[in-house]
Amino acid sequence: MTEDVPHPYSIEVSPLAKPEGHFGWAIRRNGKLTERSDRPYLTERKAWEAAAAAVERDLKPGADARRR
């Protein structure tokens, strides 16, 4: 995926072993894992879009307070 992700975030999309042919994602902030998908996605594109939406949610003010 070539879309830009705001610094200091990074998105990793990878194929899952089970179910085969599906993808999952992980979000890192300054290299530290902050969130990962809990469901499989049929395409790499759908997984990336879900991860990008999670980054956007994390950027909103008060995101840390909602996670506790």
Results as ranks from 00 to 15, higher is better:
Met1Arg: 10
Met1Lys: 09
Met1Ser: 12
Glu3His: 10
Asp4Lys: 15
Asp4Arg: 15
Val5Gly: 03
Val5Glu: 06
Val5Met: 00
Val5Pro: 00
Val5Thr: 14
Pro6Ala: 11
Pro6Phe: 07
His7Ile: 10
Pro8Ile: 11
Ser10Gly: 05
Ser10Leu: 05
Ile11Ala: 02
Ile11Thr: 02
Ile11Arg: 04
Val13Gly: 00
Val13Trp: 03
Val13Met: 05
Ser14Thr: 13
Ser14Arg: 14
Pro15Phe: 02
Leu16Val: 00
Ala17Gly: 04
Ala17Val: 01
Ala17Met: 04
Ala17Asp: 08
Ala17Gln: 10
Lys18Gly: 00
Lys18Val: 04
Lys18Trp: 03
Pro19Trp: 09
Pro19Gln: 04
Glu20Lys: 14
Glu20Trp: 04
Gly21His: 07
His22Asn: 12
His22Val: 00
Phe23Met: 02
Trp25Glu: 04
Trp25Phe: 15
Ala26Leu: 08
Ile27Ala: 01
Arg29Ile: 03
Arg29Tyr: 07
Arg29Asn: 11
Arg29Lys: 15
Asn30Tyr: 10
Gly31Tyr: 04
Gly31Met: 06
Gly31Asn: 08
Lys32Tyr: 05
Leu33Tyr: 01
Leu33Ser: 07
Leu33Trp: 00
Thr34Gly: 09
Thr34Arg: 14
Thr34Cys: 09
Glu35Gly: 07
Arg36Leu: 08
Arg36Ala: 08
Arg36Asn: 09
Ser37Glu: 04
Asp38Glu: 14
Asp38Val: 10
Arg39Glu: 13
Arg39Gly: 03
Arg39Ile: 01
Pro40Cys: 01
Pro40Ala: 08
Pro40Glu: 01
Pro40Asn: 04
Tyr41His: 15
Tyr41Leu: 04
Tyr41Gly: 06
Leu42Ile: 06
Leu42Cys: 06
Leu42Val: 08
Thr43Met: 06
Thr43Trp: 02
Thr43Asn: 09
Glu44Cys: 08
Glu44Ser: 13
Glu44Phe: 10
Arg45Val: 13
Ala47Asp: 03
Trp48Lys: 11
Trp48Asp: 13
Trp48Phe: 15
Glu49Val: 09
Ala50His: 12
Ala50Lys: 11
Ala51Ile: 04
Ala51Val: 03
Ala52His: 11
Ala53Ser: 13
Ala54Ser: 14
Val55Phe: 07
Glu56Pro: 00
Glu56Ala: 15
Glu56Tyr: 09
Arg57Asn: 13
Asp58Asn: 11
Asp58Glu: 13
Asp58Val: 01
Leu59Met: 12
Lys60Tyr: 01
Pro61Asp: 12
Pro61Trp: 03
Gly62Glu: 02
Ala63Ser: 15
Ala63His: 12
Ala63Gly: 03
Asp64Leu: 11
Asp64Lys: 15
Asp64Cys: 06
Arg66Leu: 10
Arg66Tyr: 01
Arg66Pro: 00
Arg67Pro: 01
Arg67Ser: 08
Arg68Trp: 06
